[in-house]
Each structure stands twice: as C-alpha cells, then as structure tokens.
Design a protein around this nucleic acid. Structure first.
Lengths: 125, 125, 125, 125
DNA sequence: GTGGTCTAGACCACT
DNA sequence: GTGGTCTAGACCACG
C-alpha cells in the first residue's frame, strides 16, 4: 500500500504524509480506518520508526488523523472534506504555473488537452 | 530589481536564480545584459556574498549566464530560448496538479477560466 | 452516566477516574453507592475491561472507593471530604493560570466576572 | 536563560516551547531576536539536539518563530500579539478550574485575593 | 501490542 | 557555523 522513494529529495516523512492524504482523498482510507502501525510500516518500508512517527505526528497536527496511544492511529471523521478544502487552496499555484507555461509559449490547445485528460482520469477513478 | 524573502523556506540562492530566469523569460534581461555584481547585490539585498556567488555559479552551470573575470556576469545568447525549453519540461507538474484539483472536486469550468485568464495576461504583456 | 472521549489525549482510565471523582463531589455518587461493574462499563462504553480495571484500581489507591471481592466496588465513606481537600491543593494552578492571563492583558473586570459566575453556578447547583 | 526539569512529566520539548513563549510574552525575547542555536542549547542544557530541534519545529509550526537554515532561528514579527490571543483562548480553562474550586468549598475571598496578587505581580513586572 | 518521548550520532544543504 | 532529516535503539505509559 505505502511506498517510499529513498532517493527522492522530498523527505520520507513528507512522502508518507502525502500518501495518506491522497489515499483519504481517493476514498481508499475512510473515516476511522486504522493506519498501519508505526512498527509494521517501519519494517515493511525499511524506514526507521522515528521517521514513520514523524509522519504520523504531522498528520495528527494537521487534524487528518487521531492517534490513541496503545490502540493505534485512525482517520479522523471529516478528514476528507478538510483535505478537499486544503487542495482548493492550491488554485493560486495553478495560476502561477499556467502563467509560466504561457510565457514559455506553450499552446492553449496543449494545455486544454491536459485539462481534459485530468477530468477523464478523475471521472474513471 | 531583485528581492529576497528571508522568511521563505526556499533557499535564498534559488530565489535569486529563479528571478534571473524569470527576468530573462519576460525580456527584462536580454542577451549580453549585465547581471548586477556580487558586491552590489550583496549590499542592496543584505545577503552574504557567498550566497550571491552560489546563485551565479548555478546560473553559469545551467548555461544561462557567462562570467568574464574582472568584468562581470552577462546573459548568455540563446538563454531565453533554452529557458523556454526547460519550462516546457514542467508540463508533468501541471498534469499532477490538475489531477489533485480534480480529486478535490474543483469544477472544470473553474479551471478553464483560470486557463483563459493566463492566456489573456500572457497576451497583454 | 459515564462517557469516554476516545479522541481525547487524556488516557481513558484517567477520564473515568475524573468522572467518578466529579460525581462524588457533586453528590451524584454518595457513600457506599455502588460503582457499575467492570463488565457492564466495559460493554456500555466499548472500552477494554483492563482499562476499566485500571481506573478502579487507581480510585482504590487514592482511597476513593473500596472493592468487595465478588460483590463490587463502592464509594468509601469520607471520600467526598477527602476529594474536597485534594481540590484545594489545585489553588497553585489557579495562581499560575491567572498570571498567564494577566500577562496576556486580560482585564481584571473580565476575570472578576468569571469568578462571580462560578459562584452563582456553584450556589445554584 | 533556559532550564529543563528532566524529572517533570511534561516532555522536555514542551517545557522549552513554553519557556520561549513566556519569554516572548514577557518581552525578554523580541521580534527578530535570535533563539540560541540547537547545538548550544543542547550542550548547555545537556539535552539531545533532537529534542531541542523538536521544540524549535513546534514553535515554527505555531508561527512563533521562523528558522533560516544556515543562519539560525528567530522570533517572528507579531509573535507576541499572536501569543496573547492564544492565551485569551484559555479563559474557558479558568472557568472550569473555578467551578471545581467552588465545588470544593473554596471561599470567594480566598480566590479574590489570588486574583489581586496576580495583578500586582503582573503590574510590577 | 500501540503511540510518545528521548538519547546518540550521522549526513545533508545552506550561509 | 546553522537548521533539517534520518538511522538506531531505548524507555515509558496505555490498552
């Protein structure tokens, strides 16, 4: 289920945070579903427990997850909605990226096709 | 002309590299134009000379500028075209971002409007 | 009667201990009243029996309840008085909290009003 | 300047976070003042660098502090005001504590005297 | 078994 | 020099 790319420049714990968030957005992880334990993730991913723990803490901090010492870590009710809100806040990023691409002379048709593809993929999921 | 945001988590030298590249793309810096000297940038921006030097070296490495010992640093002919090429390579980023936004339920119309605006702005420039 | 908030970071067993103590202070639980059994609490609250047992043991240790093997667990005579004593020991907490609020510029009137309200509520109970 | 109580139940990193926040509230640390480095705090307090780092990260996350890799960690402009706001949000705690003390039969006069003292101390500072 | 905290020490990028 | 990340392994409280 989870994977990490040790060679990537983005920190392992951020990769994990991102994956959990994506899994929740895609509906693979639902409210109150349990996240695999620190120790199990640590062994299956060959990543230090501390790094896993850091990812969990970050998710907790963001209100995506709640952890119950002694029982485990679970998806917080409402996490999906809150994540959808947060992704919407990245629309300015899209604006900036589009502006740069336009500067570079990328054709309108080319971009519109990518938009179409994104919606196809999204719809098919 | 140049600015740095010390509070930002993106390294100062990367901010500078990015600005030079954007100035070239926008035509503010043209072929053989001189880049301000390390010393002047260092004082006006209150940034360590080493950091400025690192940005220049990076630009040199990328083939965006050329340095003439004792005279300064200049925009390399063809830099703009080469940068436009590199921006095109960021199309996958657009795909990824679009996918995320679609997941979050952003409407097609909303995105299309942003695309339109980007082209208006680009055309007006 | 009893409730637990699994999302809270305060341990479940402490939540239970606190509730029993508060019920005794409020007079809802009186001397020699029986505490619900481990099994019944365990099922109604969906909490591990071990956790209930730990709360009971803690109450026992504090001299708030006494257990009669085979019959159950009861409020110890004098428990209320002993609890009132212990609450008095939290006056330093009040001092510390007040100090922080004063630092933050909370007005004297605002605090005095809260004190008044606390006494109104307490008297009305 | 900083101290930690290794015997306390409250985590060392939280103690540090609290101290920095209090220093800012008291005006001992001002905007853009530098926080002692991770390494120096680590040696003077005999605390592992990781623990110090955790405290810094938490302060960063709370928007109290900004850290510039390679330069150090500084008090964020506006931190004091933001902290004062956050302390105000603890007024409900005061209400709850007062309620408990009233239950325990603490006299109104006793509480009012503590309030007075808090304002004397605050004013004298 | 679980998560939370901490120590010890390493490596990296940035200034 | 600085902060940021990571590994390795320990201890604790909780369930």
């Amino acid at each position: 289920m989870f994977t990490v790319d040790i060679m990537s420049r983005v920190p392992v714990y951020e990769q994990l945070v991102g994956q959990v968030e994506r899994f929740i957005l895609k509906g693979i992880l639902k409210e109150n579903d349990q996240i695999p334990s620190v120790r199990s993730l640590s062994t299956t991913l060959s990543v230090n427990p501390n790094t896993i723990q850091k990812a969990i803490s970050e998710l907790d901090r963001r209100g995506i997850v709640y952890s119950v010492p002694g029982r485990g870590c679970f998806v917080k009710p409402g996490a999906k909605e809150s994540l959808m809100e947060k992704v919407r806040e990245r629309l300015p990023e899209l604006t900036a990226l589009l502006k740069e691409l336009v500067f570079a002379g990328v054709a309108r048709e080319e971009i519109l096709e990518l938009v179409d593809r994104a919606f196809e993929k999204g719809g098919a999921k």
